[in-house]
Design a protein around this nucleic acid. Structure first.
Lengths: 340, 340
DNA sequence: CTGAAAGCGCTTACAG
DNA sequence: CTGAAAGCGCTTACAG
């Protein structure tokens, strides 16, 4: 076993100083070609690579980005990580991933852990619990210490920082308008409880769309789901009692669940009822019927977030101008909506 | 903006030495209660947290685990990360994730990058390209430098290290036997090309099962897929010309694709043909019909891998005894297989 | 052209 | 009980 070699060891072997070795390897013109080449040859032979940790300590930057997300077993977040990772790598950064598991406490612990020098900045999306508590002190603190944060998707306006979002409200509006234009009158909504920021915005978009087309917004056409495991009866009641011609679901899990429940009740999708979802994930692509949905492009979202963070990290002066970038969405039409 | 405070600054403020501050914060009995409490109060007030990087350099360990996987936008790998992350966190470790994107070069670059001091050890799964090239020098090198590696799922016997796998061959055997016991005679296989290690093992399990039940193994009942985007015609031909009563697919993408193609040809699943998959991911759970499949339990796999790595990291003596742990699988019976 | 010194933020054996 | 010194692995301004 040959342990990694250090500058010190090279210096000793070659009987020169550590400074000389360091400068040689960095191609400093201070060093004579002779010793420079000798050192480089030796370093190559022993496969010398500078120690990252030492560099980080010296340079006061780690070249790594901390990612805090609610869950990784969730296609959208996985695509976002993928996007972050790609841009990070292109710019010589690594990513370190922490999961909050939708818990406020874990989010706080993770942030504090990483803020102790391990990373240069954060890309994050809020946990549900954090959104519910509206307690963002941990994020503000990190920012005050001079560590930049970019929030994406599940953001809050209570924190000043860079953000990357989609226009959830508009995207929902467009999706519902798409249904309206097809001629559906009776359009139901399957959404989250209000404290989930994106759920609320999509609900608002649904309401906007109906009102914008002079249609009545009826509370009894709206189902708000707290917990996916116990939502069946509520959705079934909506389908049975209100007989909607179409449903807008604010995520793909709700969409596929609605479709399955409809099937169970003998309703055919899209012949008897159309369903439109949100998030173009695995489920939308592979369920039967495939699901018409609003595509979010997590890869792009992650890429942009990483880009914003890196730009801020490599900016000369501090800059208190924060931007919010909006990633365009688009409606992917598939089999779950009738073509009237 | 109040930057993070250091020992040095605390020492200066309190007019004591850095050593005294350090010892006070670590509750050293060397220090008088008086100054100890004074220092601690001050540190608390300024929210002092030791700098991780400095600790890593000093201790020669980073308390972080490097994860190298082919892709993250892949439910199975996401569950594995989730499992690793959980166990890592419980033991005070962080995880840093790098994606090879199925590329040999990127796998090598990522490993070299992380091996330069950023992490204490690796948990990894081989990229397809690496499996094809059978070039594992980058892994062997890292191990020779004294950095432990735990491989999972896509492993190789050419590298000596700890491993976590499932018994792919046996699991496939069981799945096919399940079909045989249901009375199906004509069982097709949709599998990967041979160089994908787990695909090959599952293929072997299929063959074992047929032979073990005195059934003929026919090459024309086996479809080997290189590229999922261009596989339709091959599978269609199998369905059309050979009229299998059941299909064993070595992953869920192949399974759902087969089901969709069957549907398109007017075959009903499971009435006309049964399909059984591998990997219990989102697709298997949510497609219609839901898919009978071999469940792999990525969370457990990741957890075990992390545990093995951490145990080795925290072991006193070096130990060249490597273990291979086998995670049990089980068959999840759903709607895609007929109940005869 | 080469090297000693200081420093990044910490810990700890040792001296006083 | 307190602090100076050495050291983790590196870089760089400065001296010679």
């Amino acid at each position: 076993m040959k342990r990694k070699i250090t500058l010190k060891q090279i210096a000793k072997e070659l009987d020169v100083s550590i400074s000389t070795v360091s400068k040689s390897l960095r191609n400093s013109p201070e060093i004579s070609e002779d010793t420079r080449l000798k050192v480089q040859a030796f370093a190559k032979l022993y496969n010398y690579k500078p120690n990252n940790i030492a560099l980080s300590l010296k340079n006061k930057k780690t070249k790594t980005i901390g990612i805090i997300i609610p869950e990784i077993v969730h296609h959208f977040f996985a695509t976002v990580i993928s996007g972050i990772e790609q841009v990070a790598n292109e710019n010589g950064y690594n990513v370190i991933v922490c999961l909050s598991n939708e818990s406020f406490d874990k989010e706080v612990i993770n942030m504090e852990m990483l803020a102790n020098g391990s990373i240069d900045g954060f890309v994050m999306s809020l946990s549900k619990e954090t959104q519910l508590k509206k307690d963002f002190h941990h994020i503000v603190e990190v920012i005050n210490q001079g560590m930049p944060v970019v929030m994406f998707d599940r953001i809050t306006n209570d924190v000043l920082c860079d953000k990357v979002i989609i226009d959830d409200r508009l995207a929902a509006y467009d999706a519902v308008e798409f249904l309206i234009k097809k001629g559906f009158k009776n359009i139901g909504l399957v959404t989250t409880v209000d404290y989930v920021s994106v759920g609320k915005l999509r609900t608002d978009g649904y309401i906007d769309a109906l009102q914008g087309h002079d249609m009545e917004v009826r509370e009894d056409m709206i189902v708000k789901i707290e917990d996916i495991d116990n939502c069946a009866s509520k959705i079934e009641r909506l389908l049975q009692e209100k007989k909607p011609q179409a449903i807008f679901a604010v995520n793909e899990l709700f969409a596929v669940t609605t479709i399955k429940l409809a099937n169970k009740m003998g309703l055919k999708v899209p012949d008897d009822i159309s369903v439109i979802g949100f998030t173009d994930g695995i489920i939308s692509q592979f369920s039967t019927p495939t699901i018409t949905t609003v595509s979010q492009n997590g890869i792009k979202m992650g890429g942009r977030a990483a880009k914003m963070l890196i730009e801020r990290l490599e900016m000369e002066e501090e800059n208190e101008q924060y931007k919010t970038e909006v990633i365009e969405t688009n409606l992917v039409e598939r089999e779950s909506t009738a073509t009237l």
